[in-house]
């Protein structure tokens, strides 16, 4: 196969052994696969720590040649298309022309399970594989549809194993957790990260100045794929990559927008809130990222220290409440109103 033009894809691990910094976990998983009967698995760890990569390559290792036909990756955060919704609605009515006690009745199926999961798990595995593997990314986003998986996992466990990926294990219901073996993901060690970056730089003849691996390690939160992507961008910006180049390309206006939002809300400039707000919504960042950056911005505000403390206290309260909440638009509105309230007290 031809090497990809994008370095990110070119240096993507192709087998389980190529994943850097996870030797222990790979050894354990391989041991599990030896028995030829893997349990349901639950991978948990922050975003960008390579859960899906591990799950995918593990499935490839277990299924071998049958990987293409017997493995499916489902993304919990993919919104349902109109076609899928319509199909579910159409099939939920059993026509009177059909024979049986259910004829003429209406059922409300959970659309996600009905359109994406059921067609896959209901069929037996193709070729010589003893079971299929279903990988579900962002499982926590399924919220109330999680209940549907309790039956699915038991009923089809004879020939379908599931690998569930999540970065919020607290939002996953207990019955699912009890059915799975849990695997925790940590940051990959710096040594492995450094070695991989060095290898890429050597292969691609990139000139690195200064401690580039360390800078990337911090900037990308130990995410190798995006680090390699930044290397490619950096090499095009500047033939010699320096830490400054990395800072330049990893910076975006998200932080600036959050800062503007904070300052404008506190100084009660309600008319100039709309632009930073719509920019933040457009960026598609998660709510806890907004809180995190806002917490950093509070230190730079030109106000008395005791007032800063009250803002931080409010932020921590909102962050705590947001663990269970679902509607991010609502949370953002609440945050802005809380800031305005504090702003009123300040003046």
């Amino acid at each position: 196969m031809k090497d990809s033009f994008l370095l990110r894809l070119k240096y993507q691990p192709k087998t389980l052994d190529e994943i850097p910094g996870r030797e222990e976990m790979v050894k354990d998983l391989k041991e599990m696969a030896k028995s030829n009967d893997i349990p349901h698995l639950l991978f948990t760890g922050p975003k960008g720590f390579g859960k899906l990569e591990m799950a995918r390559l593990f499935a490839q290792y277990v299924l071998g040649e049958g990987y293409n036909s017997n493995c499916k990756i489902v993304y919990g955060s993919d919104p349902l298309t109109q076609a899928e919704r319509d199909e579910t609605r159409r099939l939920s009515y059993i026509p009177t022309s059909r024979v049986g006690s259910t004829a003429g009745r209406k059922f409300t199926w959970p659309a996600f399970i009905f359109s994406r999961i059921k067609p896959f798990v209901e069929l037996k595995p193709i070729s010589f594989n003893p079971y299929k593997i279903l990988i579900i990314d962002d499982f926590h986003l399924l919220s109330d549809q999680q209940q549907g998986f309790r039956r699915l996992m038991e009923r089809y466990s004879a020939y379908c194993r599931m690998i569930i990926l999540t970065d919020q294990i607290s939002s996953i219901i207990d019955p699912i957790i009890s059915r799975c073996n849990i695997v925790f993901f940590n940051q990959i060690p710096y040594s492995a990260f450094e070695a991989k970056i060095g290898e890429v730089a050597k292969q691609e003849n990139l000139k690195l100045r200064g401690n580039i691996p360390k800078t990337l390690y911090i900037a990308t939160n130990a995410n190798l794929n995006s680090a390699i992507s930044y290397l490619q961008v950096g090499s095009l910006v500047n033939p010699e990559i320096t830490p400054d180049t990395i800072y330049q390309i990893t910076k975006d206006d998200f932080q600036e927008n959050v800062g503007n939002l904070l300052r404008n809300a506190l100084s009660l400039k309600t008319n100039s809130l709309r632009i930073p707000l719509s920019n933040i919504k457009k960026s598609g960042r998660f709510f806890n990222e907004i809180i995190e950056i806002m917490g950093e911005e509070v230190y730079n505000l030109p106000i008395v220290e005791i007032k800063k403390a009250s803002i931080l206290e409010m932020l921590s309260q909102i962050d705590f409440e947001s663990v269970d909440a679902r509607s991010e638009d609502l949370l953002l509105d609440n945050l802005v109103h809380n800031l305005i309230e504090i702003g009123v007290k300040l003046t």
Binding site: S143, E321, D324, R326, L330
Partner: peptide, 13 residues
């Protein structure tokens, strides 16, 4: 409404 949202999410999970 935020309280209601949190409550609904707890009910559902």
């Amino acid at each position: 409404l935020v309280d209601a949202d949190t409550l609904m999410s707890r009910i559902m999970t």
